[in-house]
């Protein structure tokens, strides 16, 4: 008998499916955090594979900031329907009431809408396990985070006190009030994600592909004017440029790249030839110097 060599994508897929199933066997009230980006798209696809022919036995939770791209909201609603899953959308009422926005409030925007919003949503619904799409190759502090990552009752992460994870055995036991963030695609790289999307024809937000879009340049970032809330400075005129996005977040915080890549292979090609790392288009990592993501995570950011 000749052995069949599983490809790296088959191995990664199998590992992720195994993680999903382990959670479902142990969790009381799981949820998947769905941010509509390409990593979320892959995670959702893996969840559907893990439980087929049943639909994934948990809802999707979108912690919304009201400042995402329009195209993301459309994709979100479509995918939830297609997967046959409940979609929960949470918007921090305090942030809403105080009109917190990325133009006027800087880091407070991320803190209130996303970090606080996430904590509130998890507390409100009483979810004990939340799937997240973080990858270890994204950022240094994530490289050391476990697949099953525990949070105290007030959602804090303690990087010095993580449980060892041996073989594919995950210890999912938790104390009352504790919750778990589970990262099924921990071991995927950006290239793996793109290849998997390509191979499986997974729908993604069209903003990843190049098109003529209205843009302005701010602080070295190329921003897209996605709706009328974008405050133009006196004399500032949106310019139509061929752009696309390498990551998607709140539109006023997400820098575009000028590109002609309009198909998936072209996008991958551009990614492989590019010489700057993925998260550079996001303003968020630059807040407090180098250890900022680790600090955010300790405070409860996903």
């Amino acid at each position: 008998m000749s052995n069949r060599t599983l490809t790296h994508l088959e191995r990664l897929e199998s590992e992720s499916i195994h993680i999903f199933r382990e959670v479902i066997a142990n969790a009381e009230k799981p949820v998947m955090l769905y941010s509509v980006g390409k990593d979320s798209a892959v995670m959702l696809h893996l969840a559907r594979k893990a439980f087929y022919p049943s639909p994934p036995p948990f809802p999707l939770l979108h912690v919304d900031t009201t400042w995402k791209f329009k195209a993301m909201y459309e994709m979100r609603d479509r995918m939830a329907k297609e997967a046959g899953m409940d979609l929960l959308v949470y918007q921090n009422p305090e942030a809403k009431e105080r009109g917190i926005n990325p133009f006027d409030h800087g880091p407070l925007h991320t803190d209130m809408w996303k970090t606080e919003g996430l904590k509130q949503a998890l507390d409100l619904y009483g979810f004990d396990v939340a799937f997240g799409g973080a990858r270890r190759d994204e950022e240094k502090s994530r490289a050391k985070e476990r697949v099953f990552s525990f949070r105290s009752a007030n959602h804090r992460w303690d990087p010095k006190n993580q449980r060892p994870e041996l073989w594919n055995l995950y210890n999912a036991r938790k104390a009352k009030g504790e919750s778990i963030r589970v990262f099924p695609i921990s071991n995927w790289t950006e290239l793996d994600i793109w290849q998997y999307i390509h191979l499986n024809d997974i729908p993604i937000v069209p903003l990843y592909f190049s098109a003529k879009r209205p843009t302005v340049e701010r602080d070295g970032l190329l921003l897209m004017v996605d709706d009328e809330r974008f405050p133009l400075k006196p004399g500032e005129e949106p310019v139509m440029r061929s752009i696309r996005f390498r990551t998607l977040g709140c539109y006023p915080l997400t820098g575009a790249v000028e590109s002609e890549a309009a198909t998936l292979p072209e996008v991958i090609q551009e990614m492989l030839l590019t010489t700057t790392s993925e998260r550079q288009g996001r303003a968020i990592d630059k807040d407090a110097g180098d250890a900022s993501m680790e600090k955010k995570k300790q405070e409860g950011y996903f």
Partner: peptide, 28 residues
């Protein structure tokens, strides 16, 4: 060397996973 505290001490103190690939294999 990932975590802030470790970088100050100049040593690695936990398990960290890294990824790279050649055209034949992906490595973790």
């Amino acid at each position: 060397d990932g975590l802030a505290a470790e970088r100050e001490q100049g040593i690695t103190i936990d398990v960290a996973y890294r990824f790279f690939a050649t055209d034949k294999r992906k490595f973790i």
